[in-house]
Design a binder for these strands. Structure first.
Lengths: 333, 333
DNA sequence: TTGTAAAATGTAAACGATTACAGAAAAGCA
DNA sequence: TGCTTTTCTGTAATCGTTTACATTTTACAA
């Protein structure tokens, strides 16, 4: 590999490695003439310091690890990519390296991390009761969590309750009273919080909460489709669906259409995320924009703050925005 | 960070660091009793070897660098994610680290790489005349290139000429004779090769190549839309469009519809990539599936072969597959 | 010219591991 | 028992840097 070392440079320049090291690190105490000469030699030899050797002694790796949750689909998910864009921008701009690691369900996290040297960690959407969070809560290594809110760590997250509230309120103002809440996983914190917002909005509008109108489809399009079809078959009455992602919203629309009803005339549908499918589906889907890119960006910035020791637990709650498209309309009964 | 070192273990066990090192590395020459005792102590102390120190001496980093081209949009692109999935699967399974780096237009590549120690590199879609390729062609560091075909390096790529041929042939067999070729960038090798396939198919079918039917829209949806509208306004005659990605195909469909024509009745449209938009667009788009995930997977496997010194320039050409959906039909005039 | 302070450079230990070589302990054998 | 062979363990150099401290060189004043 890169086999020219500081010693080669030193020898060629007729100085000690210490001096070379000093010019590399811009130490002030080195004669201008020497500095120029050494710089020239470095250039000629094509020398670059050995990252690991340097890290070994300075204990700075200039590496950030991005830790992803173990779900297989995660790497395909659009929100991940948008977040990644935000993150990487900041990290690369600072000339840090970015190392990615997806957790596996089996592997003990400590084993993975203690051998994965880095200056900081960004942990994305950890599972509930995830080992990693516990690990980072104890070890005092700089880290920032995205989409989870551990008490003692820095994090950035979407205000899901507010989002649920905004969406529901919007539908209510369109005249809808029987709004079906279509969650992801029942235990997913995102879903739980959005449901809370949904219920709050209902309450404020004096609409009674109906348990039959809360169902879960694991963020999966096909599941959503199946469930909604069943509901319609069983004559469950609702005039609007609030789906916890756009994929499920698409499934809902398909289901409605296959039951010979129409969106939005008969049933209004709202998605979540503002992903590509919402923009391009045959009926453009009304949805709630999540600022993923900004989340990534903020997480990275926050991490650098944590690494500088400025803070260890600044916690940032972001808002998204309702994007109204074609899948929602006034309730007409 | 992880501050328990091999010395701590050695001291606690009352042996030398050499012995501890031997048990860590499963050297056979260590008494079973000692091994067990040391293993126990390692466990208790939560010791893990320092990655960088180890790398420094063994010259193995267990790290692969994924090098991305400098286009900003790249990180958003769906094909990147699919590829990434294929890659990362293999790399993580082998317990290697995956480091991602996007090139910047300004930064000199050598500077970036010589300080970025790793065992191997995967270079994705390098720009024509890219510095990196030249660099890797000279330095003899294990690497594999995706979507480019440098003579002296290992690579994996799609057979774009064949793809162009297959698509064009399909359209011809539907009765289309005036097929508009909508390329990405004029200089992009992908576009060039697909165009070659297109021309070959025309030739074999005795259809004269018409220069006016070859245009470029930079892989951009809006540009495609604008250009097609213009063509239609100027009464350019064509019954089918072969677009070099699905995004442009979507733009084409929009243009056609806005000119009060219909897809596929009046004009057939074929996209490329088989991305989400092709599956979900209001008219499901006929397209050419690119096996991105497989490409990533093969690239990673190939890289490991190269690293083992088995080969340095195995070159793999993959085929995709035509996916017929709703945007194409028989030519009816 | 000499003395002193400041600036430049060198020496050597350290970072946390591995490993060739040497030395000690154990085992095998007569 | 003593000698040889095998197995186990320790010593110390090494990887490529940085940096505290020591030393040399330079600059300047008297």
């Amino acid at each position: 590999m890169n086999s020219v070392t500081i010693k080669d440079v030193a020898k060629k320049a007729g100085v000690s490695t210490a001096t070379v090291s000093r010019v590399i690190n811009n130490s002030p105490n080195v004669a201008e003439k020497t500095r120029q000469r050494i710089l020239q030699i470095i250039e000629n030899l094509g020398y670059t310091p050995h990252y690991y050797a340097k890290a070994l002694i300075t204990k700075k790796t200039y590496t950030i690890v991005l830790v992803l949750p173990p779900q297989k689909e995660f790497l395909y998910a659009e929100y991940f990519h948008r977040m990644f864009k935000g993150l990487s921008d900041i990290i690369w701009r600072k000339n840090f390296n970015l190392l990615i690691r997806q957790l596996t369900p089996d592997k003990d996290c400590e084993e993975v991390f203690s051998s994965l040297l880095a200056d900081g960690y960004i942990i994305v959407a950890p599972l509930r009761n995830s080992e990693i969070i516990k690990y980072f809560e104890t070890v005092n290594i700089p880290c920032v969590v995205i989409n989870a809110r551990p008490k003692n760590l820095a994090w950035v997250d979407l205000d899901n309750k507010k989002a649920g509230y905004v969406i529901t309120n919007y539908l209510v103002r369109l005249g809808h009273r029987r709004i079906l809440f279509l969650g992801g996983y029942k235990e997913s914190q995102n879903t739980v919080d959005r449901l809370a917002g949904y219920r709050l909005a209902l309450k404020e509008n004096k609409i009674k909460f109906d348990e039959n109108l809360t169902i879960y489809a694991n963020y999966d399009r096909e599941t959503a489709k199946r469930i909604i079809k069943e509901k319609l078959l069983h004559k469950e009455r609702f005039s609007a669906v609030f789906a916890c992602n756009d994929l499920m919203a698409a499934g809902v629309i398909e289901a409605v259409q296959e039951m010979h009803l129409s969106v939005p005339t008969d049933i209004s549908v709202v998605g979540f995320d503002d992903s590509e499918i919402a923009k391009n589906f045959e009926i453009k889907i009304t949805t709630y924009f999540q600022p993923f890119e900004e989340m990534g960006k903020i997480a990275a910035e926050l991490l650098f703050e944590v690494m500088r020791g400025k803070t260890t637990r600044r916690q940032v709650l972001l808002s998204g925005e309702l994007v109204i498209r074609e899948s929602t309309a006034r309730c007409n009964y």
